[in-house]
Design a protein around this nucleic acid. Structure first.
Lengths: 340, 340
DNA sequence: TTTTGGCACTCCCGCAGACAGAGTGCCAGT
DNA sequence: ACTGGCACTCTGTCTGCGGGAGTGCCAAAA
């Protein structure tokens, strides 16, 4: 026997009530708060089936029911109509983002905005270098043997690294190096640069070979290895919202996970689908976050995707609202980037 | 009547035991764990005096005693011998910092190191721009009306900002602008730049005046207004260490405070004395942190100070150990900066 | 004057029992 | 297939009752 419409309706009601009250919801309260048109007893039967199928469970005998991860999943997949943002929210977004000056600025404002609107922990990834192209490379002499390499990407990101040269280097040589790397790399996708950089070394005049090799290794580190590294975080305090009830007693594991950039990037960083994605509880591969849900989305100018953003909260969260907000903010940021 | 030596010794014992056990400490337990050479009754008399003077208090009648903020203060001021770092800790510092490549790298490693050694929340301020000098300014054309301004400071900090020009600007003009700002500003303390920037505008050729004015306003913003902005944070998860017992029930206010950069900068940022400073509980002006203590120190190459760092934890913390660690790390970072 | 032992008192904490409330499962009736 | 009724179970809360730890005070000792 499968789930007929009413059973789904019961599940929806359970999820909604539980999200709102944080308390196990019983059959009687359900029929009182929703127009189900049937008696508590009937609802109880439906609940028994839903529990059988793994969508809800009882914390203990003779308590109300609570949705399981699977229950939330079903709710999100089949029972959610995307609810449009309120005008107030739209206005909040506009107001928050007016007068941005900078990529840094955009990212920081966005992450705060997300945290504030969803009242949850927000994460925003900087535009991924691997999806950017080189706009310009600059070499600034610091001393006779040291340069600062500055790379500016088309997404607005600016990365810089110190380059320790093997020996003293003359201003003219710096010039020549700068000219050559720019000539070869500007306009290229960062993902494609490793081969080009290698070529640069190979094609160098012998007397410049060591310097170029040195520069090349830093270039590779900067462009490729550290590429995904940066992100911004806000709203940690929101974790304490529902008391310590959510997150099964302690937020320690969650806070620990939030400190690991690698983990966060994994959470919001797989950008294959251009749509919003929801990961519920156990669906997160990270052990520390098995009592958390993550709603994430890619963003970027136009239809392309250059980075990810999202929010993290208890599995018991307002999915329709959160999804709508994340999606709206992602789109807004994309538009903002497109203007530059 | 003032506090004789034994009473101070009793206070020290109370602080030490309480920090270790997290439980109110009574007279009997005290004489058992420390060689005070007197009976519990005597200790009780001393405790009565200490309580009278406000250094300790009872959570309720007939419980043991707990240090007050004033008690910790006295302990820190008069009863703390600085305990040297263990060799293990020294090694940890060395190991953590080997192979740094970058200012960003230094700061991030330092903050994690601090958090790990003290098992508390760590904060590290980037070298303050207002205490740095300009090493180089670079202008990179992005489009005909847009430049990216990159400033490199002698402390290694690199700041960048987008400059929106009033009209199209030719490469030669960019060159000229770059030459002039570098000529005038390189080597100058950032604190002194506002006047110089103004002069630059005034002395410009009329046809270049608007462009220079535009650049100048961004320069001022970058160099002066946003100057203290950056810092790094780590170890938030350590807040959950002592259960939720510390921080009177909820870490919410603490987490909120940690999200406000302004607040953090105020905590670690007043660098007048070159020594380590301790702020205990109520001594913090920020309401949200009245159940927290902050141990902070300035750091910088040689005897100068370019930024602050510190840790934040419950008032019930191991002050001698924390102070020693913060001081050692600050000195180490200073040495590291001196090498560049 | 300072220290000490003794003693009565206070308060917290944990435990057991009682009780109300909420919710369920099942069954017989519609 | 739905509903009303009923017995049952489990939680959370409140109560009362020692046990224990710790204090304050006092009178005696050093």
């Amino acid at each position: 026997m499968s789930l007929d419409d009413r059973k789904l309706e019961v599940l929806r009601a359970i999820v909604q009530d539980y999200v709102e009250t944080h308390e196990p919801v019983g059959s009687k309260a359900l029929v009182e708060r929703h127009q189900l048109g049937v008696s508590p007893a009937t609802v109880r039967n439906d609940m028994a089936v839903l529990e059988e199928e793994g969508y809800i469970r009882q914390p203990h005998t003779s308590a109300g029911r609570v949705p399981t991860d699977a229950g939330y999943r079903l709710f999100v997949d089949r029972l959610t109509r995307i609810k449009p943002l309120t005008p107030a929210e739209r206005r909040a977004i506009e107001r928050f983002m007016v007068g941005v000056v900078d990529l840094d600025d955009v990212v920081h404002r966005t992450v705060r905005l997300l945290a504030q609107l969803t009242r949850q922990v927000a994460v925003v990834q900087y535009p991924s270098l691997s999806r950017s192209s080189v706009r310009h490379l600059e070499l600034v002499p610091i001393s006779t043997t040291r340069l600062t390499l500055v790379m500016i990407a088309d997404t607005g990101r600016v990365e810089q690294r110190l380059v320790e040269m093997p020996g003293p280097i003359a201003p003219d040589d710096v010039w020549e190096l700068r000219r050559r790397v720019n000539e070869k790399l500007v306009g290229q996708k960062l993902a494609d640069t490793p081969l080009l950089v290698q070529k640069l070394v190979d094609e160098s005049a012998p007397e410049r070979r060591p310097a170029m090799a040195c520069l090349a290794s830093v270039l590779l580190e900067t462009l490729v290895e550290r590429s995904e590294e940066r992100l911004a975080l806000a709203g940690t305090a929101n974790l304490t919202r529902g008391g310590v009830l959510d997150f099964q007693g302690t937020l320690r594991p969650v806070l620990e996970a939030l400190e690991e950039e690698v983990i966060l990037l994994k959470l919001i960083g797989d950008l294959e689908p251009s749509t919003t994605r929801v990961r519920i509880g156990d669906e997160n591969e990270i052990d520390n976050l098995r009592s958390a849900s993550v709603v994430s989305s890619g963003y970027g100018p136009g239809a392309t995707i250059v980075g990810g953003l999202g929010v993290l909260g208890p599995t018991r969260m307002d999915y329709p609202g959160t999804i709508a907000t994340v999606r709206a903010v992602a789109r807004y940021v994309g538009d903002l980037l497109a203007q530059n």
